[in-house]
Design a protein around this nucleic acid. Structure first.
Length: 766
DNA sequence: GAGCACTGC
């Protein structure tokens, strides 16, 4: 009789929420075993039956609450509604591609609802950026006539507004990736929409590989991958020829004009570029009214161009710079209404994260600074490179959103044709240590076998393992250590995570937590072009001549102290006076709060007594062993593997450079710079890196006076000599050779006076 | 003597 009841309950699992099915199934299997062993199961059966009923009820409630979405008729995606619905019914994965303005982002989750998705589990919808996730949730909620937090929720770092009744959950792709740790089969979801996959961030690439493996285990899971119109076939192939549905964008034609620079060589073209921008702007002004967006590679180019344009143009033309390091208020200027013509000079921010409204014309230099990690020198480089065709097209598309546009490219059509079709995905240009660590933690097997869309370069993989070994996150056999498992739980760069673990041991976690948080946010100290000196003076109290890290501590104490007794308005004004970004300071505090919670979970202890310079910096150095450097003649430092470095001019140590430094970051821009640095003692590195230092000995001889064999020991780390020559007991190093010295030196020549330490002449060694 | 852009339990 109980057998039938068990069977009935098992059948009812199909009406439960996805996330409840597996655990309930396991409990039913346990009951079945008890039954076979003739043990009573009545109480267990009653409890499981209640939970099955509760889960069924929750699912039924979701089913009932399913809204009937309405669609705005003027969006292109709506015309394809039925095609998308049919593809999704027939296939596990569907690729939807279309430009911004097609409405795919807002309408896809509604189409999923209409198909009855979102009942068994959530419809998870990922975005690359936090702001996008928040505002998308707000828009979908509005279109479904509901509030954020009820049927539509979102989750980003620091805010989780997903409710028990939520059917749609918008989140950053990083959040979904993080959830694989606690929910490896992603059973909270019955549908996943991976949006903006063409951006090919590390998160998206990792997720698409993970999902590919998940599909077989989750046959009822549906996945939509969305992309701009570039290369949807690539995603389709990755998912075994998933159908592609193209949704046209609501955009206007853009006329592309090629105006290549005249110069013969790079220098001449460089000189010509400034003039070419002015010429292009003139040409566009003749074309008619409307705002102009100019894409430039960096801040300095924006400044130079801005000056030239100001001299060149009548006063009714407004010139606005736009780049990532500007304060939020300065960035908001582009959304301020205006009369007359506006020329926006922008970096790549305007290509992806920020949409400048009302642009009719684009001038594209065809250049961008691209971040590339050098696995050879371990330095992050920011070279100016020609952008890909996809990127150039994205830039051109920025002027066809309100009316037909014109895009002037300051390079030739042949140049364009020869460029790579796509920007290298992040996985091909970044340090892979974090990804490898996550893969080891999740037990995903060999990285070579993981179904990445683009497999990472084996040299980068080796370098990632090497860094994890440097940090003692893996042992000599590449197996995860306890430290590695702790690092995998910290939402931090592995080097920074390692500092926290070390700070626990050094008794400096209180201070290091503040420093590590500071290193994860953009520098809150602003330095506007027009007020560089004023900013430097206002921030002088936060400088420390020994350590930029201590500089962060000073700023932190100042801010936290002021925060206690100032109103928000006054605090913001104080920030302005000191050229500090209030937004970034708050982000720093938020991160600090989050990490504080995590270190407690990891049982890392905060020190109650203030830590000294050594305790703080030894902890930091544990994460930065590869970023140690030694000063030679002049201002030049030699770092690991012989690389040449200079202290970044913004550092507090710039004027009085010490012999030994460590750097939080090595970046190659104009030069190879060590950024955020501190004075260190080389002996610290010797003690912190027993697994890395190399020792060599010379001049081994019998020392008559002390009655023992000695030698000069040299200790080095990555080719940097930490200890040039230290007299050591040679029997500890090479007992056999030491014994020879003893025999030749002491016995044969009769120099043996004191009682020998018999270990010297033992043949088995120490 | 000075920096492209994002993001996480």
């Amino acid at each position: 009789m109980s057998t039938t009841e068990l069977e009935q309950l098992e059948q009812r699992l199909a009406h439960c929420l996805l996330c409840d099915r597996a655990p309930l199934q396991r409990r039913l299997a346990g009951l079945r075993r008890r039954l076979r062993g003739n043990r009573p199961i009545d109480r267990g059966l009653t409890a499981v039956a209640a939970e099955v009923a509760a889960s069924e009820a929750r699912r039924a409630q979701r089913q009932q609450a399913l809204p009937m979405p309405e669609y705005p008729l003027d969006l292109p995606v709506v015309e394809h509604r039925e095609a998308i619905a049919a593809a999704l019914t027939g296939h596990q994965v569907v690729i939807v591609c279309g430009e911004t303005g097609s409405g795919k982002t807002t309408q896809l989750p509604k189409i999923c609802l209409e198909l009855g998705r979102g009942v068994d589990g959530l419809i998870g919808h990922t975005q690359p950026r936090r702001i996008a996730a928040r505002s998308l949730a707000a828009r979908i909620a509005e279109e479904l006539h509901t509030e954020v937090g009820s049927q539509v929720g979102f989750k980003v770092r620091f805010s989780d507004r997903v409710g028990a009744d939520s059917l749609i959950k918008v989140m950053t792709d990083g959040i979904l990736l993080a959830e694989t740790r606690s929910d490896p089969q992603l059973l909270a979801y019955d549908t996943l929409i991976i949006d903006e996959a063409h951006e090919r961030s590390l998160n998206v690439d990792f997720l698409l590989g993970y999902i590919k493996r998940l599909l077989a285990q989750r046959p009822e899971l549906k996945v939509i991958v969305t992309s701009a119109t570039i290369d949807p076939e690539r995603f389709s192939r990755h998912f075994d020829d998933a159908p592609i549905i193209e949704v046209s964008g609501r955009t206007y034609p853009v006329e592309v004009r090629y105006r290549p620079l005249a110069g013969e060589d790079e220098d001449a073209r460089e000189r010509d570029r400034g003039q070419a921008i002015l010429d292009a702007v003139d040409e566009l002004e003749r074309a008619g009214p409307g705002d102009i967006l100019v894409f430039l590679p960096g801040e300095r180019d924006i400044r130079e161009t801005s000056e030239r344009l100001r001299k060149h143009h009548p006063p009714h033309t407004e010139i606005l710079p736009l780049y990532g390091r500007l304060s939020v208020q300065q960035q908001q200027q582009v959304f301020r209404p205006h009369s007359g013509r506006r020329i926006v000079l922008a970096t790549n921010v305007a290509e992806t994260s920020l949409t400048v409204p009302g642009i009719r014309y684009v001038v594209d230099t065809g250049l961008a600074r691209i971040s590339r990690y050098s696995y050879r020198t371990k330095v992050q480089r920011l070279p100016v490179e020609p952008v890909s065709q996809a990127s150039a097209n994205q830039r051109a598309g920025r002027c066809g959103r309100v009316a037909p546009g014109i895009c002037i490219r300051l390079y030739s059509e042949e140049d364009y044709d020869q460029r790579p079709a796509f920007t290298d995905p992040e996985i091909r240009r970044t340090s892979l240590a974090s990804v490898i660590l996550q893969m080891l933690q999740l037990g995903l097997g060999d990285i070579e076998d993981f179904p990445f869309i683009d497999p990472p370069d084996p040299r980068y993989v080796r370098d990632g393992f090497r860094l994890l070994h440097e940090l003692q996150a893996i042992d000599d056999d590449s197996r995860l250590t306890d430290t590695g498992r702790q690092l995998a739980r910290l939402p931090l760069d592995v080097r920074l995570g390692r500092m926290l673990v070390a700070a626990h041991a050094e008794g400096s976690l209180d201070e290091v937590l503040v420093i590590v948080s500071a290193l994860t946010v953009p520098d809150p100290r602003l330095r506007p072009l027009e007020a560089q000196q004023a900013a430097d003076e206002a921030q002088a109290p936060f400088r420390d001549e020994q350590s930029d890290f201590v500089g962060f501590l000073r700023l932190w104490r100042f801010y936290r102290e002021q925060e206690r007794h100032l109103t928000r308005r006054k605090l913001q004004r104080l920030c302005e006076r000191h050229y500090l970004s209030w937004v970034r300071l708050r982000e720093w505090k938020d991160i600090h709060g989050q990490l504080l919670g995590l270190v407690r979970e990891l049982d890392l202890q905060l020190n109650s007594e203030p830590a000294d310079h050594a305790a703080i910096h030894r902890a930091l150095l544990t994460g930065l062993l590869g970023n140690l450097a030694f000063k030679g003649e002049g201002q030049e430092y030699t770092g690991a593997r012989g690389i040449k470095l200079h202290i970044f001019p913004g550092s507090g140590l710039f004027r009085k450079p010490p012999k030994w430094i460590m750097a939080a970051e090595l970046v190659e821009t104009g030069r190879q710079y060590a950024r955020t640095v501190a004075r260190v003692e080389p002996q610290w590195a010797e003690h912190l890196a027993p697994h890395l230092v190399k020792r060599s000995w010379r001049d081994a001889h019998w020392e008559q006076r002390r009655g023992r064999a000695v030698a000069d020991e040299q200790v080095s780390l990555y080719g940097l000599v930490l200890v040039p020559a230290r007299r050591v007991d040679y029997s500890q190093v090479d007992p056999v050779a030491a014994r020879e010295l003893f025999i030749r030196g002491a016995l044969v020549r009769g120099e043996y006076r004191t009682v020998p330490d018999w270990r010297f002449i033992s043949t088995t060694g120490p």
